[in-house]
Nucleic acid binder design. Structure first.
Lengths: 227, 227
DNA sequence: GCTCGGTGAGTAACCACTCACTCACTAGGT
DNA sequence: ACCTAGTGAGTGAGTGGTTACTCACCGAGC
């Protein structure tokens, strides 16, 4: 719904001192404006006329840069959706067996990703609308992310530091804890309960303590009374 | 994308023994067919022509039953999205302080909800596309669900059974653990790791142990070696 | 003078929605 | 028993507006 007037303003027709932007500059400004619109309204909900207006150019020029609407959409997804660069620092922490740091790094990364509403909406829309690139992204993301975390959990369990849990289930559970909060807020409009970053420590502590806990002796119904 | 031929078949023109369906029956069959299409392709991605074809009637008749496409969509959301009936059994378990049962009931309910792809997609699409009813649903859902769970966690912490955690954060974390798994599978096409129901126990154990754990003595980097 | 950034004015297809109309059946008067 | 007026289910053939995309044509700078 929301337009992107800031971008359009940089490209207005000025009869005097006309610094005509190069093809690449134009392409970048088109992608920026279109990404915002696609994120807000989805692929079907966005018209090429709207995009052209937001950039400040004619529809015809839009089709000089991208042969079809779908090609523009694909270019945006390809640009926005990149494999994260977090693995180096995580691997270092993992080598040191610094569980807190491993989980904190991963949680922080997820929160940062989830806090970009444009990216979040773009990804959800593309998945729901069944765009091929979205499926590919998740396959890749899955490999570098969930598989790594699951592997770490399995290793720590073997070393006796964690309880014996299902590693992949646990990796997904941890990720879900983080992203659900962001999803509720960014997509469903539920008010944010805390600042995104200062909840990381709380999540990590809660989760790690669960992983490390020695199973308590079965004490069913410990303590009685109305809630 | 997928048509609903079964429904259409019941309403074909048969010169002999023509049992014309009543208005209410028609209305129900329209809602069923349209819900499947809206869930698959979203509001903007579904045409009234497609819906009429799926039901097996003319477009004109569709507009005799629902004044606009939007009204049909609203009727579907209103029907599909109902407040869950789970609170009675949960309250009983909560009164008995049966933590396992409280969390298991809630987890099971979330999984059952999340396992209906039509409902899940309908809800996500409507939230992304900004339909008013979706926001309302989540406000209601939030009250009866998250608030209750957070209240229970706070109470149990006060009684000394749980550690002192942020109750709302913890309630959302638990819910997120459950739904993320379903989201990955149903929306993003990540293969299911386990059957949905048999992961409940694993989640609950992991989470409850985290809540009950006595904070372990700080032991940074316990155990070394390559992963 | 030729390329490149840029456009106004289209076009065919598609969209939600309308209209004038048919058909099968029923209730009631005669 | 028969006519008839009414009713509700149902439709073919549109309507005006919108959509993605095209094309012939500019004007400025190298």
């Amino acid at each position: 719904m929301q337009a992107v007037p800031a971008i359009a303003a940089t490209a207005r027709k000025k009869p005097s001192a006309s610094i005509r932007p190069s093809g690449q500059e134009r392409q970048a400004s088109i992608i920026a404006a279109a990404a915002a619109l696609f994120a807000a309204n989805g692929f079907k909900g966005t018209t090429t006329k709207e995009i052209a207006k937001a950039v400040g150019i004619s529809e015809a020029l839009l089709f000089k840069h991208f042969p079809t609407k779908r090609a523009l959409y694909a270019a945006i997804l390809k640009e926005k959706v990149s494999i994260p660069e977090l693995l180096a620092s995580v691997e270092e922490a993992a080598h040191k067996r610094d569980d807190e740091r491993v989980f904190t790094l991963i949680a922080g990364h997820r929160i940062r990703r989830g806090s970009d509403p444009t990216l979040l909406r773009l990804l959800l829309f593309s998945a729901l609308e069944g765009h091929e690139l979205s499926a590919m992204f998740f396959r890749t993301q899955h490999r570098v992310f969930y598989d790594y975390l699951a592997g770490y959990i399995a290793q720590r369990a073997k070393e006796g530091a964690f309880r014996h849990v299902d590693p992949m289930l646990t990796a997904r559970a941890f990720t879900g804890m983080i992203t659900h909060h962001r999803l509720l807020h960014e997509i469903f409009g539920v008010p944010a309960h805390r600042g995104p970053e200062d909840s990381v420590a709380a999540y990590v502590t809660l989760f790690l303590d669960g992983l490390r806990a020695v199973r308590p002796t079965r004490r069913k119904a410990a303590g009685r009374g109305a809630p």
